[in-house]
Amino acid sequence: MPIEVNGKSIETDEEGYLADLNQWEPEVATVMAAIDDAELTETHWEVINFLREYYEEYQIAPAVRVLTKAIGKKLGKDKGNSKYLYELFPYGPAKQACKYAGLPKPTGCV
C-alpha cells in the first residue's frame, strides 16, 4: 500500500515497510508514525537515526536483543533496555523503529 510523502507516492509492503530502501527521507518516518497515531520526538529520532547508521554499516536490521545492547553502548545504559525502547515504540522497538527508519523487517522477526 503506497503512502503519501511530500506529494509523492511511496510504495510499502503489506506490513508497511518501505519497498525500496532508497526512497527513505525523514518525512517518511513522520508519515508512518502518523498512520500509527504516534508523534516522533527527539528520543524517537535518536533510535531511528541509530538504526539507519547501523544498517549502513552492517546491511542488516538488528534483532531487538542486539539493538538494545548497541543502543546502550551508544546512547547510555538508561536507554539500552527493553523498557525504555518499548515505551518509545510500543509495537516493538526493532519492528516499529526499523519500519520508520526505512529498513527491512529485522531478520528473525515474524
Binding site: Y58, P62, V66
Partner: peptide
C-alpha cells in the same frame, strides 16, 4: 545484487 558481506562483521554482536 545486495552485498551482504558487511553483515559478517555484525555476527559478534549476535
Amino acid at each position: 545484487m545486495k552485498n551482504f558481506s558487511p553483515t559478517y562483521r555484525a555476527l559478534e554482536m549476535y
